[in-house]
């Protein structure tokens, strides 16, 4: 039997998401501009582009996937371990995961297949001048 995954319900199809503008949207209706505008008005948060460099099974945590990113203008290398069904938002494409089938099963959220070369939306703290 599969272990019960941690299912953040904000990825469930139909989940209501509040943008920084105050606007409410369903998670499946979000578009790139919603993230970009939200970051602009949020004050303190900044959208970064995180390029997927490599996708492989996690060495430390079986069942998880290690995603290797280069983040932002500095192209810092960051690796995170996530369940294969975890959705990421790809610029100009929308929700994408390593296992769109599992994402559909667990969340009902339609996803593209996340691939090396995809540019994901991530957030970071805005640099104070």
């Amino acid at each position: 039997p599969a272990p019960a995954p941690c299912n953040p319900s904000h990825f469930m199809k139909g989940a209501i998401i509040q943008l920084a503008t105050g606007e409410l949207k369903r998670v499946e209706d979000l578009q790139t501009q919603d993230f970009v505008r939200s970051a602009e008005v949020s004050g303190g948060l900044k959208i970064d582009s995180s390029l997927v460099m490599d996708i492989r099974g996690s060495q430390q945590r079986p069942g998880l996937v290690s995603l290797h990113f280069t983040v932002g203008e500095q192209q810092s290398k960051v690796t995170i371990d996530v369940p294969p069904e975890h959705p990421f938002f790809v610029f100009g494409q929308g929700w994408s995961s390593c296992s769109p089938e599992r994402t559909a099963q667990l969340y009902g959220l339609a996803c593209h297949h996340l691939q090396v070369g995809d540019m994901c939306v991530s957030i970071t703290l805005q640099q104070q001048p």
Binding site: A15, I16, S76, F89, I123
Partner: peptide
């Protein structure tokens, strides 16, 4: 109906990490 903030949907990736 629960409402979730937009920033809970995308990863917080700290670009200041060296490497």
């Amino acid at each position: 109906v629960p409402v979730f903030p937009w920033h809970s949907l995308v990863p917080f990736l700290e670009p200041s990490q060296s490497g």
